[in-house]
């Protein structure tokens, strides 16, 4: 019998532990589902997902395509990055376009509300249906928001994509239940247990490239709903909304019409880590106009099929 104390246990940091868990989750999905897909937005969380997929499946190709739900309101820097990263990886990208959903009459833009965040849900569900996906990886984290704090890693959705918080399956150990009934699909969140800090530390450790808008840069911005929004052709301004040139960066990349910039001079990943360590406002609170509306807005949108 070997004495446990004599076996040198390899040193294992919190990032190693999180990575090992996420890789395990991705492999479970590959093994238990017929047609998975990975949502890639070009944002930092999905950049981490891509690296984790490499860790899980290389030297083989990913056993699933990537999918981008394109709101049409993108930061050009992010689109450039997306295409470059996909080409580097040599994986297949499917684009589901909100503009197409609008053109084909599947959804209608709300007058006066430039944000396409809500419309994305329909485009996403149509994409899932069209390609027959039974599991979709997303980069959501439980530390982002209080409804997410209770969501499972394997989050079951009905045929309308809806999340039912009261009838979630218990999730024990690392035994994920991937069985589906007709019409259901699974949203899977491999980095559920990561925090914003973990994501940045991992980006630093793995030396991952992120879109330039995450770093401090000069930009024309104006004040709305207590946030700095970048000027954009999709974003009409009121007369009293004066444009200023400021040094800012983004903490999340989303629909350019409702994602706020923060005043910052963090120009490197290390500087961002220092900033995140000192930050006293949550990522969503700082930069997402649509979450501030009601105490339960995220929960409401998730019930409707949002990520």
């Amino acid at each position: 019998m070997i004495d446990a104390a004599q076996v040198p246990a390899p040193r294992f940091s919190h990032l190693d532990a999180l990575e090992a868990e996420s890789v395990f989750i991705m492999r479970e999905v590959a093994a238990e589902f017929q047609h998975p897909a990975l949502l890639f937005s070009g944002g930092k969380d999905s950049i981490v997902l891509l690296r984790l997929a490499e860790k899980a499946f290389r030297p083989a190709r990913f056993p699933f395509p990537l999918m981008h739900v394109d709101t049409g309101h993108n930061f050009p820097e992010v689109m450039d990055f997306r295409d470059r990263r996909v080409a580097e990886l040599g994986e297949r990208l499917i684009v589901a376009s909100v503009q197409q959903s609008i053109d084909s009459g599947r959804v209608r833009e709300e007058p006066g509300n430039p944000s396409r965040n809500r419309l994305q849900t329909t485009t996403l569900l149509d994409g899932i249906l069209e390609h027959g996906f039974d599991a979709v990886f997303g980069g959501a984290r439980r530390d982002e928001e209080k409804a997410r704090a209770k969501e499972r890693v394997f989050s079951l959705r009905d045929e309308f994509g809806q999340w039912e918080p009261r009838s979630q399956r218990p999730e024990l150990w690392s035994l994920y239940n991937g069985r589906l009934r007709r019409g259901q699909h699974m949203r899977v969140f491999p980095i559920s247990n990561w925090t914003e800090m973990d994501v940045w530390q991992y980006i630093e450790r793995e030396q991952l490239e992120v879109p330039s808008i995450y770093f401090a840069h000069e930009r024309d911005v104006f004040r709305r709903d207590n946030m700095w929004l970048g000027t954009s052709e999709h974003l009409p301004r009121g007369e009293d909304e004066l444009v200023e040139r400021m040094v800012v960066r983004y903490r999340t990349v989303g629909d350019a019409t409702c994602t706020g910039a923060v005043s910052s001079d963090a120009a490197t990943v290390e500087a961002i880590i220092v900033e995140v360590a000192a930050a006293r406002i949550t990522e969503r609170g700082a930069t997402r106009a649509d979450d501030a509306f009601s105490e339960t807005s995220m929960e409401d949108r998730k019930r409707e099929g949002y990520f």
Binding site: M1, A4, A20, R27, P59, A60
Partner: peptide, 30 residues
């Protein structure tokens, strides 16, 4: 952590369909 009883449940078989890794057959797991 149990460092005594060696157990490796095979999760997924990695078989790249590429010339560079023609004979590669790896058993992935935690």
């Amino acid at each position: 952590r149990n460092l005594i009883d060696p157990r490796f449940p095979v999760q997924w078989v990695i078989r790249p369909q590429s010339d560079a890794h023609h004979d590669f057959r790896g058993y992935a797991g935690q």
